[in-house]
Design a protein around this nucleic acid. Sequence first.
DNA 1: CCTCGCTTTGCAAGCGCTTGCAAATTGCTG
DNA 2: CAGCAATTTGCAAGCGCTTGCAAAGCGAGG
Lengths: 347, 347
Amino acid sequence: MMQKSPISPQDITIYDVAREAGVSYSTVSRVINNKGVSADKRERVLRAMAELGYVANLQARSLAGGKSHIIGLLVHSLSIEYFDEIARGVDDELAAISYDLMLYTTHRRKGRESAYVAKVTRNLVDGLLLVLPRNAEAYLQALGHRRFPHVLVDHQGLGFDVPSVGATNQQGGYDGTSYLITLGHRRIGFITGDLTLGCARDRLAGYHEALSDAGLPADPALICEGNFLQPQAFSCANELLNLAEPPTAIFASNDVSAFGVMEAVRNRGLRIPDDISILGFDDISQAAQVHPSLTTVRQPLAEMGRAAARLLFTYINQPDAAIKQIVLPTELIIRQSCQPPAKSTLA
Amino acid sequence: MMQKSPISPQDITIYDVAREAGVSYSTVSRVINNKGVSADKRERVLRAMAELGYVANLQARSLAGGKSHIIGLLVHSLSIEYFDEIARGVDDELAAISYDLMLYTTHRRKGRESAYVAKVTRNLVDGLLLVLPRNAEAYLQALGHRRFPHVLVDHQGLGFDVPSVGATNQQGGYDGTSYLITLGHRRIGFITGDLTLGCARDRLAGYHEALSDAGLPADPALICEGNFLQPQAFSCANELLNLAEPPTAIFASNDVSAFGVMEAVRNRGLRIPDDISILGFDDISQAAQVHPSLTTVRQPLAEMGRAAARLLFTYINQPDAAIKQIVLPTELIIRQSCQPPAKSTLA
DNA sequence: CCTCGCTTTGCAAGCGCTTGCAAATTGCTG
DNA sequence: CAGCAATTTGCAAGCGCTTGCAAAGCGAGG
């Protein structure tokens, strides 16, 4: 038999630990898995493991029917800070229970979701976290069919009843808009996110709701469809600013879009917030770093990641736990990009 | 024996494939591993695999002494687009050889590099890619000791002779500076990166070299120590702009820093590039998206990732392949953030 | 002091795969 | 067409672990 690689000779197995501790290998296994073992033996095993520097072999573990102690995280991309924040939360939580993270980016296997899921689930991970998947239904079907532990992040409003973690997007849209109204703005531009996503639609709904609650008209010209990306927001902002009666504030559906707005505004020599107020959504780290710092609706991304990891973990350990949908609160973070409109149109 | 999870019943193994194809299971294994098998049997096995939808069980594979077909990627963080670009390149290359990616972020296990490496190497991956590791020596020692396939990305100038992939940082610094000089700039500010990193030092060296080749004085006041992050660059830029005789151009050691400079410049009501030229380094995607678009020294990050993956792959398959250090060329990307200085000081 | 039920322990089997070894098959050569 | 080397093939073992099962240990009730 070939050694897997010319790895260092002292690869410690449970047999070594068992010998050192003077117990049987199954006892060692039971210690590792927290099964019933008498206190003194457990003690001895633990000491032996520490002395020998034992490291569990995950593949053997999961082959033998145990857990692999790895969960999969499915995202589109990583460069978007949004994903990274979530990943960070997940990672934190996993570190606490010494799980590892296997990262899958979807872009490379478009349209083959179920084959993909088959591969993933069969191979390695104990559970799967899907962040804002493009084709959730296809995944879910494959996953559900295999009864495989999974949790969706930021993907509410599905027909299915599916374990998920999200944020109060509509409330966030409402709060942001209301804040601008309170400041005295009457014409508030809105740049949507990718409207195929529920979170984008919810934010827009919140905007409408706030307007209507304040008795303000909803001018369709003030709404421009974006896609959560900076260049699109840049042109949306230009469109809005070109209006005969331009808005005095612009609410962008995410921070990245807000940055695009800031660019467009400055490009015309307008000042922020003196000439126009800008509001974002998400509160990615850059929001606090730009000048002026961006007032935004904070979405607790890392916290969502943590919650999702915890939830997934329950499903891993109790496959029949009830399906839960966690919704975390958004929060308005007031910084410096908004102020009352210059020529106040206060009624 | 417990099934690993309540997974779908039809989990196809090589035995099933063997039965279907009418051959022995070892023949199936040999087909999978491209060992010598007669053409007709290979054919039959392949067809059977396709029909049954066979998916290899990676843990069994690697337990049995084969490859796991997973490589590890070690990065600090993901939010930084720099890392993501590299990861994308790696991922592309791996997709081509149907390898998977296991992601490790270092922040959570500070100072325990060798224990960490022990765990990683022993557990899962066939090889490890280290991107700009903070404590390369510690990792390398552990890795080398285990003779474990690994490649460093963007970490030249090490005492060791180590497999690595990098870019021509000094040349890039030289080219960028020379470009500004050609444009007519004489006082060129420079914001360094984190000088504990070789790439940052190299870029600075290129700046110095270009200045000296052009017979220009090196004014230390024009050099400000940054850390590759936006806020620090913002204050550096302010410092530079406060000089009695401020620079007419600022060369930032990465694009993110250049964005910080742009902010600082605009914050004072100066225009880019009319009042001051700005040059970046890296060419992350945002560089093309900001306004004005950023002239920058392109570092082929994705290509570096690909090259690193390929190199690692050779080491995985030929543990004794010669240690290779690949250096990819940088390239000046001219966009709109630079132009000749306003009050030209052409000699 | 024996017996019963509970917990702790050890043994063996097996997870799905790779690969050394030996047997079977093939293709040549003389 | 026998005889030999070079393939191709199958069998069995084993990678490191978990866990069912049965044996052993233990305290308490009779």
